[in-house]
């Protein structure tokens, strides 16, 4: 008698992706789809695709989807969620989309405590347009628009989205995982699961940043890419949960005491 040990999650379609070899979008898609399956949310989910490499992610996810204007995915998600609070609404966004053109939308969605989930994939570069400097590009990192390496005097330091959003007083679940190793994929899946659970229980805004690779635009092999991520990105973008709705940060506590 045969027994199925592992199969494609129902939340994914049977399509080949257009992602480059070694890109971790596929693995991150799978984590999201598995969590949605496990929580029984597929038939009540509306996803929002960004502009960037994952603009076509609705070809791979097997669920209702909207395709947003560049950076506006959180606004799309808010419009849907406010009308249909019974639905599970999430955005899937890259670093150019979320941390550059979409900073206003993500900041205010988080600050209003919108009950949506954001999967934020950070690979420190613009992928689809061919390797330009992102707000998350590391100091000295070479891209097509920082050919001498990112000069922090001119371009500023890379934005740490997890840390930035965690300063907001509004309760939220904000964590950073990574896709560079099986161990971290497993832990990242736990973060994603928590994020969707917080939405399901109508608790708070949730965002999981996932560090990822771009072998094509980094000019590396897939293996070199995962090593580069571990050696260069993780020191600047520490992994782990930074904010949970149950715990108030020290600064907020102090402010409440003063008032």
């Amino acid at each position: 008698m045969s027994q199925t040990i592992i199969c494609k999650p129902e939340g994914m379609r049977d399509n080949h992706t257009h992602y480059c070899p070694g890109c971790t979008h596929g693995a991150i898609h799978r984590l999201v789809a598995e969590v949605i399956d496990e929580l029984g949310l597929r038939e009540t989910t509306v996803g929002v695709a960004p502009v960037g490499c994952s603009v076509l992610c609705y070809n791979y996810f097997n669920m209702d989807f909207l395709e947003a204007a560049h950076g506006r995915a959180p606004a799309f998600a808010v419009g849907m969620k406010r009308i249909r609070p019974d639905l599970n609404v999430f955005t899937y966004q890259g670093d150019g989309d979320l941390a550059s053109i979409g900073t206003n939308e993500i900041l205010h969605a988080a600050n209003r405590g919108e009950k949506i989930t954001v999967i934020f994939v950070n690979n420190a570069i613009y992928g689809m347009t061919g390797g330009q400097m992102a707000p998350t590009t590391l100091p000295q990192q070479v891209t097509t628009t920082s050919p001498m390496g990112r000069n922090v005097e001119e371009a500023g330091w890379p934005i740490r989205v997890r840390e930035l959003l965690s300063t907001l007083r509004t309760p939220a679940y904000i964590a950073r995982g990574s896709s560079h190793s099986p161990q971290w994929l497993i832990r990242t899946k736990q973060y994603i699961r928590k994020a969707f659970q917080y939405q399901k229980s109508n608790t708070c805004f949730s965002l999981v940043e996932v560090l990822s690779t771009c072998p094509t635009n980094w000019g590396m092999t897939p293996v070199e890419s995962t090593e580069w991520l571990a050696d260069n990105m993780i020191p600047y973008y520490p992994l782990g949960e930074l904010k949970t709705p149950e715990v108030e940060d020290g600064a907020t506590k102090k402010m409440l005491e003063v008032n």
Binding site: V46, L66, A75, G79, I83, N104, E105, H108
Partner: peptide
Amino acid sequence: GVFLQAESELGASNMLFGAAASGKRA
């Protein structure tokens, strides 16, 4: 009904997309 003061007209109009995509009058 739903009243939401958005962060900008960019926000409001893109929320309108998300809302209208649900098939409800917005």
